[in-house]
Design a protein around this nucleic acid. Structure first.
Lengths: 190, 190
DNA sequence: GTCTATATTCCGATAGAC
DNA sequence: GTCTATCGGAATATAGAC
């Protein structure tokens, strides 16, 4: 049945995303996904030929989501600080789930991944950094934001605070992430 | 032979450290280490009962290194900025080797690790953050450094910049890390 | 004490059933 | 088109040789 197929595929993506962000790419198996869905591991292979195909699909989904966000932000009249919030919020949700972002997760396993994945993740990274950079520039021009580095460097500083923030929070606690998040926002307002 | 034993054990630690920081904890096997040293994988099991024992030994070694650094810094008259450099330099070396720090690596695989490792890594994290925090406080009091957050939060901001900086550099290039490093130092001087 | 040969479990993946 | 039974190989780990 077509509906069944689509559902299973979506479910695999959902579980796969969770596993990558919770356990790490090299720490879970197709059998783990299958167990969660009460199917056999080979059924996962049907929907995604190999593990790296699943990873590529997940990175693609992220790219699409950010493309969608990009359009949303371009046609929006919200403050640039609110726009930046759209990049920060996902990290707060991740922290709450004791998970890390897909970019950070892939960065850790980067040297074990095939070129096809590396190329896709580069696209995603440049896209996100570019969007944050643009939002920062816009905010500075409008006088809504303040920072002293180049917009690119400022974007790097903010995103590394968030990415490593959720990683650290798994070890030292969520309060540390919360303080990082507040500080990031506070600095831009000053 | 005793000398032989010690050498092999040290070699295993050396390779293990490299693999964890380059490939990630769940991405290499004892067989990989054995191949590198031209021995059998079971020989690695002799020196370190299981993979987690090797990881614990590596975390312990890091703790000892930072304890040693702590004593060195306490009895030193170097500027607080130079002291901070002692925490930053290792990250620049990691970046050059396209590797990530052991804390970041473990943070990614954190949810797959036994409690014994989690406890040890917590110790290491609190130790490093505490040392950076203390150095920052000292620098502010002496008027050598400037920052507007609490020393703890400032330490968090700096260390997350560095940790995620080397991760990101594997994907987007070393120049991004270099800009992060410069900005971190520049801000403290202002 | 140091290491090798071997066992066992689990991995990702294919061929074929429904 | 969708999924199951099964394979070859690699993972961690033990038991025993030197």
């Amino acid at each position: 049945m077509c509906a069944r197929n689509t559902d299973t595929k979506e479910e695999i993506l959902r579980i796969g995303k969770h596993f990558i962000q919770y356990y790490g790419y090299n720490a879970f198996s197709y059998a783990d996904i299958a167990r969660e869905l009460n199917i056999k591991n080979a059924a996962v292979h049907y929907h995604f030929r190999g593990k790296e195909d699943l990873l590529i699909a997940l990175v693609d989904k992220n790219i699409e989501n950010y493309q969608s966000l990009s359009k949303q932000l371009n046609h929006s009249k919200m403050s640039t600080l609110s726009k930046l919030g759209k990049f920060i919020e996902p990290y707060s949700i991740l922290c709450e789930a004791e998970s890390i972002c897909i970019i950070g997760s892939i960065a850790s396993d980067y040297k074990t991944l095939p070129e096809s994945v590396k190329a896709k993740i580069s696209l995603l990274v440049e896209m996100v950094l570019g969007m944050v950079e643009q939002t920062l520039s816009e905010g500075k021009k409008k006088g809504e934001l303040q920072f002293f580095e180049s917009a690119r460097t400022q974007a790097l500083l903010i995103m590394t605070n968030l990415a490593a923030g959720v990683q650290l929070a798994r070890i030292s606690g969520k309060k540390d992430y919360e303080n990082i998040r507040k500080a990031v926002i506070r600095r831009l307002k000053k």
